[in-house]
């Protein structure tokens, strides 16, 4: 057992020290950006924070082994929930956020139910089928959703970039805290046992389908909240929020960053920042190339280091020692 004070032990491990230094510099950067009033940096920051929160939500689903290949469905429902409530029904913002949450919970319960009946490739195809249904509904139901050109948010809800930046930062930090809290709670342990050994968990009396549904619901709700925020950022929303491009980015953030760690999405959003920079500094004609670059990185990371970037900062034995 380690009798030395925690601080010394911390310093002795160079990987953790580097991690801490990086974190500190990131925090300084984050607080400095709003001071510069540089719109481009703030936009990149907002996108990075949002993807951190989305990545944490994906990781929550991954705790029970949910390979959420169509996570943009949850995200998009949050976006459309608030947009439709504000425009078609003239409801208050809270009602819009609640509408998005309710839609997401319904979808999550359906998916959680399906995950108990199907597994592997079949489950993945079911997810794709569901998300394709939602996408086609959003495109064809023109009277409600505005079709593929979408709906604009009312001008009265326009927020200045700085406010959006701090809201996004708040969402990202809260999502990370929530993830840690969930992982350390009893529910978190039950989630992980459901993934690692479902038959044993069931034999020990754990209600496996319930935990699956719960984690899907939590994952979906968090993604939906990010979606509601995104509606305020973009101010004009169309059905592209349901597309595979967003799903792939969310998965990339989580998987390349590291599935089992709260810092995973933080590292993963470096890719998002890189993508925004590349797209921002080169003419849009070359934009498909930036997708090619991050797809290549995704493939490389998936093949070479499936545990993700976060595992660079942990020693091999760490995971089992700390998490058990």
């Amino acid at each position: 057992m380690n009798l030395q004070p925690k601080a010394l032990a911390f310093v002795r491990e160079p990987r953790k020290l580097i991690g801490a230094i990086l974190l500190l510099s990131a925090v300084i950067l984050i607080l400095y950006i709003p001071v510069t009033k540089n719109r481009r940096l703030m936009t990149i920051g907002i996108m990075a924070f949002m993807y951190i929160a989305l990545g944490e939500s994906w990781n929550i689903g991954a705790m029970t082994g949910l390979f959420s290949i169509a996570h943009s469905a949850f995200f998009g429902l949050g976006v459309y929930g608030i947009t439709i409530t504000l425009t078609r029904f003239q409801g208050p913002v809270i009602a819009g956020i609640l509408a998005g949450l309710i839609l997401n919970i319904i979808l999550a319960v359906i998916i959680g139910g399906i995950s108990s009946k199907l597994s592997g490739l079949y489950f993945t195809m079911a997810l794709i089928g569901l998300s394709a249904t939602i996408y086609s509904l959003s495109v064809q139901w023109v009277s409600l959703t505005g079709g593929s050109s979408g709906i604009s948010m009312p001008r009265a809800y326009l927020l200045p970039k700085r406010t959006l930046y701090f809201i996004a930062l708040g969402i990202a930090v809260l999502s990370m805290i929530f993830y840690v809290f969930l992982r350390r709670s009893k529910a978190g342990t039950c989630f992980v046992t459901t993934r690692e050994n479902p038959s044993l968990a069931a034999a020990l009396g754990s209600n496996v389908p319930f935990w699956r549904i719960l984690s899907t619901v939590l994952s979906a709700s968090m993604a939906g909240l990010c979606g509601s925020f995104y509606a305020f950022h973009l101010m004009s929303n169309n059905s592209e929020v349901f597309s595979g491009a967003y799903s792939l980015k969310i998965m990339m953030v989580s998987i390349v960053g590291g599935i089992n760690s709260v810092w995973g999405p933080v590292l993963g959003c470096l890719l998002i920042i890189m993508d925004e920079y590349i797209r921002g500094s080169m003419p849009s004609g070359l934009a498909p190339l930036s997708v090619v670059i991050y797809a290549l990185i995704l493939i490389l990371m998936a093949l070479v280091k499936p545990a993700g970037l976060a595992s660079f900062f942990e020693k091999p034995g760490d995971r089992h020692a700390a998490k058990n």
């Binding site: 390979f67 290949i69 993945t124 595979g244 491009a245 792939l248 998965m251 998987i255 498909p288 190339l289 997708v291 090619v292 797809a295 290549l296 995704l298 493939i299 998936a302 093949l303 499936p306």
Partner: peptide
């Protein structure tokens, strides 16, 4: 991994 890699390849081909 297979799903991710092939999705990545798909994005590369489409954008290429």
């Amino acid at each position: 991994t297979q799903i991710l890699c092939t999705m990545g390849i798909s994005m590369i081909v489409i954008n290429g």
